[in-house]
Simulated scan of single mutants.
Amino acid sequence: MLIEQIRLDNGCALGLSFEMQKYPLLVIRAEKGFLMCGYLNINAAETLGDTAAKVKGVQSFEDMLKAQVVEVTRFARELGIEPGMTGKEALEKMF
């Protein structure tokens, strides 16, 4: 497992990368929520009351920051996070 600090304009997030067989499982955790890769389930995050946004087709933290958000929980929407914004834009709203 790789743990990395990711410096953003509004704060410092924590990136977690776990190598799977073909692609990594990636999460970037900010103060109020997290950005997840396609391995994880947005419906589970919603049910658990998490603020989360999902990106797909990523293999690194940098990819996650550049990728477009494809799904969000209602808690993320309350922070102004919407599908179509970049992962970086979504994370900036989670501080």
Rank of each mutant, 00 (worst) to 15 (best):
E4I: 03
Q5P: 00
Q5E: 15
L8R: 07
D9E: 15
N10A: 13
G11E: 09
G11V: 02
C12N: 13
C12V: 15
L14M: 14
L14K: 12
G15T: 01
G15M: 07
L16C: 07
E19H: 09
Q21L: 11
Q21V: 08
L25N: 11
V27Q: 09
R29W: 02
E31R: 14
G33D: 03
F34R: 10
F34M: 15
L35S: 03
C37V: 05
C37Y: 06
G38H: 00
G38A: 08
Y39H: 14
Y39W: 13
L40V: 00
N41R: 13
I42M: 14
I42G: 04
N43A: 14
A44K: 09
A44C: 10
A44R: 12
E46Q: 15
T51H: 00
A52N: 06
K54E: 04
K56I: 12
Q59V: 10
Q59K: 12
S60E: 13
E62A: 15
D63N: 14
L65K: 10
L65C: 09
A67T: 11
A67D: 09
V70K: 06
F75K: 03
L79R: 05
L79D: 00
G87D: 12
G87E: 09
G87M: 12
E92R: 13
K93A: 03
M94R: 03
